[in-house]
Amino acid sequence: MFSQITLPATLGNLRQFLDFITTCAEKQGFCPKRVSQIELAAEEVLVNIFSYAYSEPGGEVSVTCGSDSARLLIRFEDSGIPFDPLSKEPPDVTADVSERGIGGLGIFLAGKFMDEIHYRREKDRNILTLAAAPKAESEVSL
């Protein structure tokens, strides 16, 4: 079963969006650690949308959450300007502190923690989807 929430795309609504998503993940039986990783990925995607999607206030974001058999699926939709956060160059996470910037780090983390992350532009809407299995792939490689 999928549930949905639609709210204005502002930082003030971040907690409400995240509560909705973590409740959804908990209902699927995901462990607290995995829920926290999902929350982080969702925050990074949402903050990106809040920052870049709309040039004027009033725009909204819809978040749909549910599961297909084993995985949790989360879809973020907005009707802002076309913006593919995945097209950005990933940050150099091996750089030393003096050469370190912070650009792109949020989406990079989201990609690391989620099993899949996709973007598409459809009918004047940005659609970003995350898929998470109960166990993070990153746990295997760390």
């Binding site: 926290s36 929350e39 982080l40 990074e44 903050v47 912070i102 780090l105 949020g106 983390l109």
Partner: peptide, 9 residues
């Protein structure tokens, strides 16, 4: 218990 990229910045 939780930190995101904003905290890393």
């Amino acid at each position: 218990y939780y930190i995101s990229s904003a905290g890393l910045r």
